[in-house]
Design a protein around this nucleic acid. Structure first.
Lengths: 343, 343
DNA sequence: AATAAAAATGCAAACGTTTTCATTTTACTT
DNA sequence: AAGTAAAATGAAAACGTTTGCATTTTTATT
């Protein structure tokens, strides 16, 4: 494949607009970047010229000059999954409102891939970037720091995070779900979690749950900690096998996706939820509320996080300063619904 | 807020790399763009210099010169919804493999907003763009044509589409679901569809279903065509009210999201599916297979479409030519499962 | 060993803006 | 009406690459 070079073809540039409007290119540029500085008739002439010509400014050319692209990056473990889609949409919509755009990519829970993606985004000159959680390689941070590009961690919250973060307290979410089951009188409880190796959110939830259980003197056999990917099918399959043989009275699912799978499995086996088994999730994804039985879970305010992440990054980029509130906690909400009950 | 200008700070440019490697900037540039043209020792010196300096190329500067940004746009109605997430992920992943990135935005089924987004992406210099379906304003196409930017329509398929398209035959999907219910002996059937005003996919499905019903002499009272947004909660609420009063024996749901809502509603009311009511969807989204009862639906190969869309756009951008196969149909697959039964 | 052809490299002019600095125009004082 | 301050505009030099053309180096040929 030989190299093509795109000719500008029919697309007019700022110079054509300036010529037609009878002003200098500088003035046209100002018309866009500092609208209030160009006055009355000049203003109108430019507006008309641009419209007549169908001019669309080339922000890249500007970027080259002043270093700001108006594009922000968001790197998530996965797009195709209820988990982050609300976050993505909110983040994107907020940027759109502020006349910026979003570059997004998924790394599939592979941190080396994440590093590669950061690099690739940097090549495209982003004004800031949001990463999920705290588990990352060191390299991307060096690259970002050298270029003074704002980074924030999103989705998880730690009081003394090293980088600005906006998220919820996943440890607390874990405590809550465990606490809830304990209060309902459950003593034989199983936990279903994904591999927590490079997933601090899951790890924190699990710690929260386990610590709470231990604090309440609830003993757990090692085989009561199950590993399961965030996948309905996998969860359903796992559940079916676990439910065959002396199942616990309650399951703590690391997130709603797993919980959905477990509920479907119960329905499939004719096990009554919450009659025979209680199931609790974390996330409150779309649909959890409408499931039958409606899922007891912890609501993670993904929209709020998305909006706040965008705003924070925008401000960091504008001021060049870290946010005044370094670690921002977004409140969780416990959603007691129909999938758990007193024993 | 006063203007900031980002100083390049610690970030080295191609010139620094060249200096350190003892070659000209042109050679460094070639090292990246035509790796095979720069040889042995030179090659190694550049590689080392770049690594030592932590050099990251600035693709924007290059774009300015040759017109290619390596970024492609994807505009969808909504991100936060099972419908398009698989497509988005596949499209993005494919571009990533080819060292490109994706700019994505959602217009919320608002075509004027879509036009604004296209403009905004154009300002960022994309190499190509994919839009969902065939319902669009004329403006974006003019802007794209003037600049000779490849566009494709994705998700829907029409034999003689005016622009290159990759998608499935939604009309056929509509026929299939209707046909299936007819074969099972249903005669009182309701359709649950979103507003089809600016949604050609839904419109085509509805036409397919209605035409098939009519061709089989099945009469439908006007109140058997229900309107419902793609939202589980809305669908469940609607279903609950409809199911109270002489419900039909089967529901055709425009997509699986609506079907999920209907199934939950039935469970909630103690109505047996498929015993009392048959429910069929379109989409085969994640989870439909695992629902209880598993949802009978039509699989839309979102992943295949995403990959093929990326490949097609890439080729169009590389060659400057329309794809040899102008309209690409992706086969549907009928998934007969447990939510429908013979009457 | 000399010559021709091919391969690798360097030079410098783009690419389309933004922005500093200088200049012109306008608005305000008295 | 003159003078001054403020506002609007223009000229030209960046921004960090890529690439056509020219030059140098290497390789192949005789």
């Amino acid at each position: 494949m030989e190299k093509r070079t795109r000719s500008r073809k029919g697309a007019p540039g700022i110079i054509e607009v300036a010529k037609l409007a009878g002003v200098s290119p500088a003035t046209v540029s100002r018309f866009y970047n500092a609208p209030d500085i160009v006055k009355g008739p000049t203003r109108n002439r430019i507006e008309k010229a641009a419209a007549d010509l169908g001019y669309i400014r080339d922000r890249m050319a500007g970027t080259l000059h002043n270093g700001f692209s108006g594009t922000f990056g968001l790197i998530v473990p996965t797009i195709d999954n209820a988990i982050f889609s609300e976050l993505i949409e909110a983040f994107s919509a907020r940027l759109q409102e502020r006349d910026r755009t979003m570059l997004i990519a998924a790394h599939g829970y592979d941190l080396a891939m994440e590093t590669a993606i950061v690099r690739s985004l940097l090549e495209r000159r982003i004004d800031g970037i949001a990463l999920i959680g705290f588990d990352h390689e060191a390299v991307p941070f060096n690259m970002l720091a050298q270029r003074d590009i704002p980074v924030i961690s999103v989705w998880n919250y730690h009081k003394d995070s090293k980088i600005p973060c906006i998220g919820m307290d996943n440890y607390k979410a874990g405590q809550w779900v465990a606490q809830h089951l304990i209060e309902l009188g459950h003593t034989d409880i199983a936990c279903v979690f994904p591999d927590t190796k490079s997933n601090d959110r899951a790890r924190d939830r699990l710690s929260g749950a386990l610590d709470t259980l231990k604090a309440n003197k609830i003993k757990m056999a090692p085989n009561r900690i199950l590993t399961c990917a965030y996948d309905i099918g996998a969860a359903k399959t796992l559940a079916k096998s676990v439910l065959q043989d002396k199942p616990p009275s309650a399951f703590i699912c690391c997130n709603d996706v797993i919980a959905h799978g477990f509920i479907y499995a119960c329905q499939s086996l004719g096990i009554n939820v919450p009659g025979d088994i209680s199931i609790i999730g974390i996330g409150d994804f779309g649909g959890s509320e409408h499931l039958e039985p409606a899922l007891t879970t912890v609501r993670l305010p993904a929209k709020r996080i998305g909006v706040q992440a965008a705003d924070t990054l925008l401000k960091m980029s504008d001021t060049g300063l870290p946010p005044k509130q370094f670690a921002q906690a977004i409140d969780l909400e416990f959603m007691e619904r129909a999938s758990t009950r007193k024993i």
